[in-house]
């Protein structure tokens, strides 16, 4: 991930009022995690799996603070259970920012399942999402995601792909 994209993500999160980020680190966002850790305005919480991170983000929502769950898109699979219960059962939203592993251009066999499952899972959960492949569209996407999530009180996802993560 280039520095410009890292900066755009952090600017976008701050502009959306995010003060807590839960993450499980991955390779495509490798440069993003230490930058989030180093930012004095954002509290980062590394988690043991993304489902735990989703539930923590749900708790942060209940406090009135704004959180983001940052992860590889494989983390969506680990998060489905808490996302279904919180989102569909109680209307507690989680805003997700994920790297799009397995998108066209992927050259790792182990990442292919992530690409094949991500969009069908998001659709099954009726979670709106935007795939962003241009650095100058990151901030707007993050802004729009929070606007929607705080109108719908339901989950939303941004997947970063293409030149942003390569």
């Amino acid at each position: 991930m280039k520095q410009g994209a890292v900066d755009a993500v952090i600017r976008g999160l701050k502009a959306a009022g995010v003060s807590v980020v839960c993450y499980l680190p991955d390779s495509l966002f490798k440069e993003l995690y230490p930058a989030l850790d180093a930012d004095p305005d954002i509290r980062t919480i590394p988690v043991t799996n993304e489902g735990e991170g989703a539930a923590i983000c749900g708790g942060v929502f209940l406090s009135g603070k704004r959180a983001a769950l940052v992860m590889e898109n494989s983390g969506l699979r680990a998060s489905i259970e808490p996302l279904a219960r919180m989102g569909l059962g109680a209307g507690i939203p989680v805003i997700m920012l994920m790297s799009y592993r397995g998108d066209l251009g992927e050259n790792n066999w182990w990442a292919i399942p992530h690409g094949i499952t991500m969009e069908p899972l998001l659709n099954a959960m009726r979670i709106p999402y935007r795939v962003v492949r241009k650095e100058d569209e990151i901030e707007t996407a993050i802004h729009d995601a929070y606007e929607w999530a705080y109108a719908a009180y339901y989950h939303v996802a941004i997947a970063l792909s293409g030149e942003i993560v390569r």
């Binding site: 735990e52 923590i56 749900g58 708790g59 808490p82 219960r85």
Partner: peptide, 21 residues
């Protein structure tokens, strides 16, 4: 009290709330 029907989510949610407040 938030009454939740969520196996495995309760303490993580409570921790998130504790972080926020």
């Amino acid at each position: 009290s938030l009454f939740q029907q969520q196996l495995g989510c309760v303490t993580p949610q409570a921790f998130g709330l504790a972080v926020g407040l």
